[in-house]
Nucleic acid binder design. Structure first.
Lengths: 107, 107
DNA sequence: ACTAATAGTTCGTAATTACCGAACTATTGA
DNA sequence: TCAATAGTTCGGTAATTACGAACTATTAGT
């Protein structure tokens, strides 16, 4: 796997995060990961968007990693993704909560 | 001027707003309008990005209007822009504040 | 060890989007 | 009426995105 550039906490950029969350598919992924506070692989995380090509999905997860929203841990064949809640909260207090802790319709 | 589709409050879409704010130029525009609580025309609002073509700027303002972030009022030759603070707060409580009320560097 | 299955990434191409300069409309003021 | 200011629209090109196909890597079955 190519070395991903996951930004350090102090290098998080607000517009990168907002841009990453500005796509409905990525928004749904992050919301799902955030609400369920669990760590899911790429396929499970995107259940509401089942008909998306996996190459496209791979790209979405790359954007999320590079924006700093999620981190990945390799476990066997699968990538275990989780939202970098503490990192983002420490740099942008209350941002995640105000964006994700609601039942906005996202279509 | 072509009829713009500025969404009603109840039709605001979170991903459209995040996507609009995910661009550094548009972020700076909205942040400026928000902080100064004043109504500025397009040229004034984008002082930190002076070397952008005005056609590009026009496009950025169109995105902001269509996302519902700003409203426009024609006054003489100029467009007076302002952030739709009340509308957005009523639909997405605390969103604007947590995104804009900080001194994040935005490159 | 060999094979198949699962999970992701990478690559090439087509489609979509973004940026810029130039030309245009509209309003104001001399 | 003419010039200046403020924005929009258009056309071409550059950059980005989505997809399927081919690839790598790990696990499980035999």
């Amino acid at each position: 796997m190519r070395q991903e550039k996951q930004p350090r906490t102090e290098d998080l950029v607000i517009t990168d995060i907002l841009s990453a969350l500005g796509d409905p598919v990525r928004f749904a992924i992050v919301k799902h990961l955030y609400e369920n506070k669990c760590q899911l692989n790429c396929t499970q995380a995107v259940t509401p968007f089942a008909n998306i090509a996996k190459s496209t999905l791979s790209g979405h997860f790359r954007v999320l990693r590079e924006s700093g929203l999620i981190s990945v841990r390799k476990q066997g064949v699968e990538n275990i993704n989780s939202v970098r809640v503490d990192d983002i909260n420490s740099r942008f207090p209350n941002l995640l909560n105000s964006i994700l802790s609601n039942d906005y319709s996202i279509t």
